[in-house]
């Protein structure tokens, strides 16, 4: 019932508006009536204990999994029936929880793949070595180089991506997604496996992205990062939203404290 009610109220001003999302795996209700918004120009954090369903929300939003119910509107467009590729090409770009740099490619080539959706990539043009295709290639390479420069990874440009330190790989993935000039960037645990300085760099990068005017939806376990960077926090537990608000509001919410302490004091630090 409530799912239908909230569906009609998809927020027109939000960048991403999720209403009444639901998904079961077999008998397990992994996501149950989840609704939240990502506003333009803001960093929104999606937090919750392990197995709460955060990654599943990402997979449902990007149609990697088919949803049982609910409505997702991105930049005024209903994402129902679009393929993951089409969604990416609308400007909703996501990263994955496990580091997924492309092995077998150098760091700069990885970033260049991110720029793919902006190019024409005419096969004939490339095969015939036409000037236009080579110019496109040159510009992409230059822009990728600038991106790497931005996060201080220029030194790694020519190295195989898999040979980069873990922290650098995580940053590389974010930069690769950024290269696609997203209208909304969704990051799944970008800080997992990073040490304190690397996390600090990531926080700076997120702030820089916000400054560029790109809204971010980030799943994160690292509470200090969330509290430092996020404008709004959405808390999910056992597949349902239990709190939404500013970092300060959420931090003092009893249900949130309970959810975290009740399971394991994972994120409470």
């Amino acid at each position: 019932m409530s799912a239908i009610d909230t569906q009609s109220q998809a927020n027109e001003t939000a960048m991403l508006s999720v209403r009444g999302l639901a998904k079961s795996f077999g008998g397990l209700k992994a996501i149950n009536d989840v609704s939240f918004d990502v506003r333009p120009g803001e960093v929104t954090a999606l937090i919750g204990p392990n197995g709460a369903g955060k990654t599943t929300v990402f997979n449902l939003v990007t149609n990697i999994l088919a949803r049982d119910a609910g409505r997702v509107v991105f930049a005024g467009r209903d994402l129902a029936n679009l393929s993951p590729v089409e969604i990416a090409n609308l400007g909703l770009v996501r990263t994955f929880q496990s580091a997924r740099v492309f092995p077998g490619m150098t760091a700069i080539e990885n970033v260049m793949v991110g720029g793919h959706r902006l190019g024409r990539h005419s096969l004939a043009g490339q095969a015939l070595w036409l000037w236009r295709a080579r110019e496109e290639e040159r510009r992409t390479r230059q822009r990728a180089g600038e991106m790497l420069e931005l996060v201080g990874l220029s030194g790694f440009a020519g190295m195989h991506a898999t040979e980069l330190p873990m922290g650098a790989q995580k940053l590389l993935e974010v930069v690769r997604a950024l290269m696609a000039q997203p209208k909304l960037l969704c990051l799944d645990e970008p800080a997992a496996g990073l040490n304190d300085t690397e996390t600090q760099e990531l926080a700076n990068l997120l702030r820089a992205i916000r400054k560029l005017g790109i809204p971010v939806l980030v799943v994160e376990h690292n509470m200090s990062l969330v509290m430092n960077v996020a404008d709004r926090v959405v808390v999910i537990d056992s597949g349902a939203i239990i709190a939404t608000g500013t970092p300060a509001e959420v931090q003092n919410n009893n249900r949130v404290i309970e959810a975290y302490l009740g399971k394991e004091d994972h994120g409470a630090s």
């Binding site: 990007t62 990697i64 393929s83 993951p84 590729v85 990416a88 090409n89 770009v93 996501r94 990263t95 994955f96 997924r100 492309f102 092995p103 077998g104 490619m105 080539e109 260049m112 793949v113 991110g114 793919h116 959706r117 990539h121 690769r176 997604a177 696609a180």
Partner: peptide, 17 residues
């Protein structure tokens, strides 16, 4: 590059459009 991206990770490639 697109082919190589698909080779190493189809889903990540698709997520980049």
């Amino acid at each position: 590059r697109a082919l190589q991206a698909i080779r190493s990770d189809q889903m990540a490639a698709a997520a980049l459009g």
